[in-house]
Amino acid sequence: MPDSQKSRARRKSLDVRAWNGTTRPYDLLKELAIGVLVVGVIIVGFAAVAGSPDEPTITLQNWAQANPNDFVATATAELAGTSDTASYGPPYSSTAGATQTLGPIDLQTMSGVQLRIDAAKDFVITPLTTLDSAPDAVSTWRAATSEQQTAWATSYSDALGKASNGDPSTVVSGNYGPVPQLTQGLLTVAKGGALDGAIQSEGGLYNTNPTPTILFLSDGTYFSSLATAQHLTGDQWGMMNETGSYPGQSWLWLFSFWYQVPLIGNLPNADLVVVFIMVFLTLVLALVPFIPGLRSIPRWIPVHRLIWRDYYRKR
C-alpha cells in the first residue's frame, strides 16, 4: 500500500474510532444548566424590553367601513366568478387551467378540490339569506340561470370599473339584474358587523376555520394595501418580515429571495418553481456529506485552521 493511502486509511480510522488522545474535563449537565441560565437571562431580557408585536386582525367590517367601493367591487367579482378565490382552481374550485404546472407536473390538480368554496354562494348569497338582507334580490338571483347570473354580475363589474373611484352611486344604469341590490345589501350588513358572524357561522358554533373570511378579504385590494404598507408582501421580502420593526422569520431569507429574482418572481408558476428549488436545495444541504466538491469546501476554505488553531499549533 502506498504511503499516502496508508495515511488516509489511518486518518479515517481516527475519525471513526473513539478519541484516545488527551482530554479535558467537561460536565455535560453543568454546561446545559449554565446554557439554560444564560440563554434564559437573554430571552427574558428581550421579552421584557422589546415585547412582541400584536397588530389587531382585519375584519370584513373594517374593510366595508374603510373602503366600501373596494368591498362592493369584490362582492361583484365573487358573483361574477372572476375573483381570485372563485377562479383559483384546486383546492378551492375546479376552474380549468388555473393551476400552476411545471412541464407535465400538475400537483395542484392531483391534490383535487379538497376545500371547495363556492365564492358567490358562500361569501354573498348564503350570508344575505342568513341575515335576511335584500331578500327580493336573493330570490331573483336564485331564480336565474347561471349564464344570466354571470352576465348581470360581469356587466355590473365592468360598470363599476368605469365609475369614478369605483363608487357604486355613480354607476351608469344598465342591465345588472339584482346585483346592485345584493352587493349593497352585503355592504350594509358588513358595515354593521353582522357579515363576519354570518360567514363564520357557516361552519357552525364551534367553527375554528376562518378560511372563507381570509379568502374573501384577500380578494379585495384593501387587505393587501395594509400588508404592503407593512412591507409584508411577497415581492417585498415579506415572507421574512414581521409587523413593525420586529425581526421575523429571517431563516426564510432564501425562500423569499427567489421571489425577488424577476426571472422567477414574474413566472405564472413562480410558487411551484420556488418550492422545487427549495426542496432541491434542502436535499442538497442534507446530503452535503455525500456530494463531491461541496463536502470538500471546508478543506479549501480553511476556517477549521481558526477553529482548532490550538490543536494545529501544538502538533
Binding site: 383559483y88 384546486p90 383546492p91 393551476t99 400552476q100 400537483l107 395542484q108 392531483m110 391534490s111 383535487g112 378540490v113 379538497q114 376545500l115 375554528t208 376555520n209 376562518p210 378560511t211 381570509i214 379568502l215 408558476n269 410558487d271 411551484l272 420556488v274 418550492v275
Partner: peptide, 17 residues
C-alpha cells in the same frame, strides 16, 4: 406555494384549528 405543490389541500394554513 402550498397549493401549487399540492400540499395545501391537506395542510390548510388558513384553517386555524
Amino acid at each position: 406555494a402550498l397549493n401549487a405543490s399540492g400540499i395545501g389541500a391537506w395542510f390548510n394554513v388558513a384553517n386555524f384549528g
